[in-house]
Write a protein that binds this DNA or RNA. Structure first.
Lengths: 158, 158
DNA sequence: TATTGTTATACTCTATAACTATA
DNA sequence: TATAGTTATAGAGTATAACAATA
């Protein structure tokens, strides 16, 4: 059998999803036609700020797993594109708050709805309860199931 | 508001999954401790050959969406690590077949079972039918749902 | 002294182009 | 002439280190 366990099946699917060509396709679907400054590199900053709200580069770096310096450079690109603005943090003169502009929020909303519509068209072929169950399960999985940090017992393979 | 449609929910989850830190975590879970030559770059070549069987660099490049030159360089790394061997293609003297060695196949199998075990431990908390349904749905989604190419009219529209 | 933002530097991965051998 | 494999080059992205300003 190809599908001995749910874990095995999900493992195979994740492997496929991690392949660059799959990711590139998804990213194109997300960012296509939105301007030269929205790409695979700036997207995490843009969506991170949309999801978490205004934050400093250091805080966002911690949140999305990139270095401060990378955030700073991408923020400059997004600022030049008019999607993000920098402002002084009132509570700490060292810090600079990164905030999405109206254009930035609009763009993020545009990306979100476009991909959601794509997916809704795909799920139109699915039985409604099954589509909903899958969506809930996937979110739950992404939120909780990606914590592989704990040492996996088999550990040192020498 | 949180879950307007399945598409919207899946879109958010995919956005999360595409973030580099999530990918890096998954890749660590897959390749950790397997040697310096198995990483995010060589993994697609390794798993591609395991999935598709012996192939030339050109064919594999087409299959996994990387350039021939990239395949060739990673193949060299994997060959040095003893996981892959090159052999002449009997039917075309220009071509070189890339084939996984026994060690290569063992390594792939090791990666696969390790991640599958991880995931099975995670799914142990789920009701069995729900876990199976999710696994099937995810595979179906990855196999069919990633075709977001904007113009379905010009090509194979299933 | 520690931290923030920024910039310079080095490293890695990928695609393009160029070269050789073969169809 | 076209295609396969390989190598050299260039482009992009990230992390590290170093700097000035502030806590």
């Amino acid at each position: 059998m190809n599908t001995p366990t749910p874990g095995g099946e999900v493992a195979a699917a994740l492997g496929e999803l991690l392949v660059r060509s799959s990711r590139a396709r998804l990213h194109r679907a997300l960012t296509e036609g939105l301007g030269a400054d929205i790409d695979e590199a700036t997207y995490p900053v843009l969506s991170g700020l949309a999801r978490l709200g205004p934050r400093t580069a250091a805080a966002l770096a911690c949140d999305i797993g990139l270095d401060r310096s990378v955030i700073s450079r991408h923020a400059t690109r997004l600022e030049r594109a008019g999607l993000l603005s920098r402002s002084a943090d009132p509570s700490d003169a060292r810090a600079t708050l990164l905030t999405l502009t109206d254009a930035g929020n609009t763009t993020v909303e545009h990306m979100r709805t476009r991909l959601a519509d794509h997916l809704d068209r795909y799920f139109a072929d699915w039985p409604e309860p099954q589509a909903q169950a899958f969506a809930h399960a996937l979110r739950r999985f992404v939120d909780q199931g990606l914590s592989f940090e704990e040492s996996p017992a088999d550990g040192a393979r020498s």
